[in-house]
Write a protein that binds this DNA or RNA. Structure first.
Lengths: 337, 337
DNA sequence: GAAAGCTGTCGAAGCGCTTCGACAGCCTAT
DNA sequence: ATAGGCTGTCGAAGCGCTTCGACAGCTTTC
């Protein structure tokens, strides 16, 4: 293992000089810098992370807490995680992966041990049990998702309320009067996940304003669950012609079932999905959708956190504006009966 | 921040004693241990990760390199990552997330900086460019996937060759003579990903042995790509009645297309998928499938690596035996024409 | 009952880095 | 000329922990 001291000796300077070349915190003459950089290259030197963390009280690590649950659309999580990791690297940080397994204690452990300089929390619930700990330890942190009380917190999320409103507006414009919402799995609502509830709120509020009838049904993913849910919906509201789907693993089953029942999309019914672009584009009918900007959320979260760690910027709630892309699953107003 | 020294003072012992209580590397009397443990609890002490790493040259961190590519079924990756993270925790390790972005240099950086004690590599190619570095730096490492040359390496993977053979056997038993393989995206084969090639090898070898005709076609995910691929297959081999699908995002499109063409599953054609259980169960036809045991792979990888770090166990290739579960997508032999 | 061996504890020496104060040498402003 | 300011470099003091050798006080052994 090559150490700073060895580099210093090789370059004929003191250790502190090498350190300053590395950090740029003091000015170093061009000739010295070059000499040092050459030695670093020749010896293949890499600063020791532990020593650095100890001396500087900065680990250059960001902790990312991802949920364990599998009832939430996983690819989105994955996309966020990857965006976080790559963005973090461009700022000189590495990412530590924490799963929900450990629960809120992970916050205490990470804060206490100096393992990470800050953390990013995903899958935040409205009344998340990690929040008190976060405030108590005052860990620099950024949430992806919105809890009920955001005072003193930095959050990044898609504006799901506006997303819900947007979907309803779109369907209203196409002349739909009876709209059904295929929601996330019941468990998601039971634990009061912010995004699900806010979407619903946006949907309902706008539906009321526009005079639409809205029926919301949570739905586990998969074909069988969707079949049951759809049957119930059509039983209760036979005139339903508009669908908003927020559970990606229900998208394809819904399309298949509608087809099977002879309801043509978009001629008879319209479907609007809230899902990643890829899902919308790859579906058997290219879906009109509001994209979940996973990458952007991950990137934003890191940038907010890095700003915080650098002492720039404070608490802030960033809500990304939803964008609805019209594709083949929603058409003009259906024929009036 | 509470330090070891403060705990020691509070408990009325020396710092080294506290350290030994924590590590258990020397015997400590019960009374002293209790006193120390009480102080730790009362003060809310957490050992500083950096100091620990510096002093012991062990970071208690495992690096997990996940690929950036999105042409590989992502949920599997996510599942593996989560399994790795949770298993690692049970062994006292945290997980650092590295993306492919940085490329092979990440290996050098991690090895050089002592950031992690070892690493787990996912999405290994047959002739992976990270392998020379791994050998050169002799980082303790475990691969999830199998490269061409495994000498000196520890690998964990599903036995994809056996998986391919199993699928063919199943279709052969059902009387199918003409079998089509819907493979991963072309890019996956172009970069010589081990699992894709080995599956194909298993499929081909066994098909030859059993006298089946096999047609392999790579396929991007999604409905449109699948439509094109299927049309070509049926054009070339109209008598095709058996399908093996290895690209999960092609599964549902394939089923929809077959339905649309009036080919009933499993009456007219059989479909066998190589995919996670969840996909098989949630599909519009419950799929006969060979499961990809993501969790088990992640867990195994960690356990191998931990064993290595503890000086136990050496290089080994663990191939998990595939298991085929018969569901509703493959039936008895089709009627002979 | 002296030698030898345990057990439990302590002190001190680092691990490799950052950072602060010091200062030599030089340049500018009076 | 001289005081004052810069620039570039160095030495040394830690950061909080692990670990090694030492040793005091016991117990065992013949």
């Amino acid at each position: 293992m090559v150490t700073l001291a060895e580099v210093a000796q090789h370059a004929g300077v003191s250790a502190s000089t090498v350190s300053y070349v590395l950090s740029g915190k003091r000015s170093i003459s061009a000739t010295t810098r070059q000499r040092v950089e050459r030695s670093i290259r020749e010896l293949g030197y890499h600063p020791n992370a532990g020593a650095r963390a100890l001396a500087s009280s900065r680990s250059n690590i960001i902790a990312l807490m991802i949920p364990l649950r599998t009832d939430i659309y996983v690819p989105v999580m994955m996309e966020i995680a990857i965006a976080v990791a790559t963005t973090a690297r461009t700022h000189g940080y590495d990412v530590l992966l924490l799963t929900g397994e450990e629960g809120p204690d992970a916050v205490r452990r990470v804060a206490g041990s100096g393992l990470a300089d800050g953390m990013i929390l995903m899958d935040v619930e409205l009344d998340d049990e990690r929040l008190p700990l976060l405030r108590e330890t005052d860990q620099p942190a950024v949430l992806i998702g919105l809890p009920a009380d955001t005072t003193g917190l930095t959050c990044v999320d898609l504006d799901f309320r506006a997303t819900g409103a947007l979907c309803v507006e779109h369907l209203a414009e196409r002349g739909h009067r009876d709209v059904a919402v295929i929601g996330e799995a019941p468990a998601v609502y039971e634990r009061h996940t912010g995004f699900a509830e806010r979407t619903l709120d946006g949907l309902r509020t706008r539906a009321r304003e526009l005079g639409l009838r809205l029926l919301h049904r949570p739905c586990e993913g998969g074909y069988d669950a969707m079949a049951v849910t759809l049957a119930r919906i059509l039983d209760e509201r036979p005139g339903t012609t508009g669908f908003v789907v927020q559970n990606e693993s229900a998208v394809e089953p819904l399309l298949a079932l509608l087809r099977q029942q002879g309801r043509a999309v978009p001629e008879d019914v319209s479907v609007v999905a809230i899902c990643p672009e890829q899902v919308a584009v790859q579906a058997s009918v290219r879906l009109t959708s509001v994209a979940i900007p996973a990458q952007e959320m991950g990137r934003h979260a890191v940038e907010q956190l890095v700003a915080k760690l650098d002492g720039r910027g404070g608490d802030e709630v960033v809500l990304l504006a939803p964008e609805l892309t019209v594709r083949a699953s929603s058409g003009p107003a259906p024929l009036q009966p």
